[in-house]
Nucleic acid binder design. Structure first.
Length: 208
DNA sequence: TTGTGGATCGCCT
DNA sequence: GGCGATCCACAAG
């Protein structure tokens, strides 16, 4: 497989955050480094809607060094570190001034599985990138990528397959946001129904 | 300047 | 299912 072409910059601008969260399912996330290029198909996302969303880092338009890129134009990478150990990857959405983003929670390995396995230190395909901290590690994405545009190398999105039929996409509450009040119940987590690469937290009734 | 806690993961029982 | 790792961003003062 040769490296796929990136999406056009306009793709990010013509949809709201929830639409983008759905639209990212089935797209390829590609990262090229000196070690080679690797890619995964996005199978799970979560929408975070800034000002009105208590779960979002930018809730109430909170503008800090960390949230700054979310206030900029859509289609850029928002990266943050969590628990001092892991990095999470978001796609900035919404127009300039609207601090919204989509968290990519899981990808299915598509290209260069050996490289992904080496970075992760595990070899089971279903464990390579089935979580937000796992996929950044598998693809070699770091805090240094914060703010980069996602329509050109080294880190970009590419169309991979046609949009999924509605019945193939499931929606439900987002993971691990107990502090978010009412917002913890909003059905803004989306995933490809039954896909093996969707994250599997240990909680009860972990729906996949 | 300091204290607090997190959009997670993997190992332990 | 429970818990520790590990550190940066944030807010308080």
């Amino acid at each position: 497989m040769t490296m796929p072409s990136p999406v056009a910059p306009e793709w990010f601008a013509h949809q709201d955050t929830v639409s983008m969260a759905r639209g990212l399912l089935g797209q390829l996330l590609v990262h090229s480094t000196a070690e080679g290029w690797a890619a995964g198909m996005i199978v799970e996302t979560e929408a975070y809607r800034g000002p009105l969303d208590q779960a979002a880092h930018s809730f109430g338009n909170r503008r800090t060094r960390r949230t700054e890129v979310m206030f900029g134009p859509p289609g850029h990478a928002y990266l943050y570190q969590i628990y001092g150990l892991y990095v999470c990857f978001d796609v900035v959405s919404g127009p300039v001034g609207a601090p919204e983003a989509v968290l990519v929670r899981a990808v299915a390995p598509v290209e260069n599985l050996p490289l992904m396995a080496r970075r992760r230190g595990v070899w089971a395909e279903s464990d390579l990138a089935s979580g937000p901290g796992k996929l950044t590690q598998a693809l070699g994405i770091t805090m240094a990528h914060n703010g980069l545009p996602l329509w050109e190398p080294p880190l970009y999105l590419a169309h991979y397959r046609d949009p999924w039929p509605a019945h193939a996409i499931a929606a439900g509450p987002r993971r691990n946001i107990p502090y978010a009040g009412e917002a913890q119940h909003y059905p803004w987590r989306f995933w490809i129904r039954g896909h093996a690469a969707v994250s599997r937290p240990s909680g009860p009734a972990a729906e996949r």
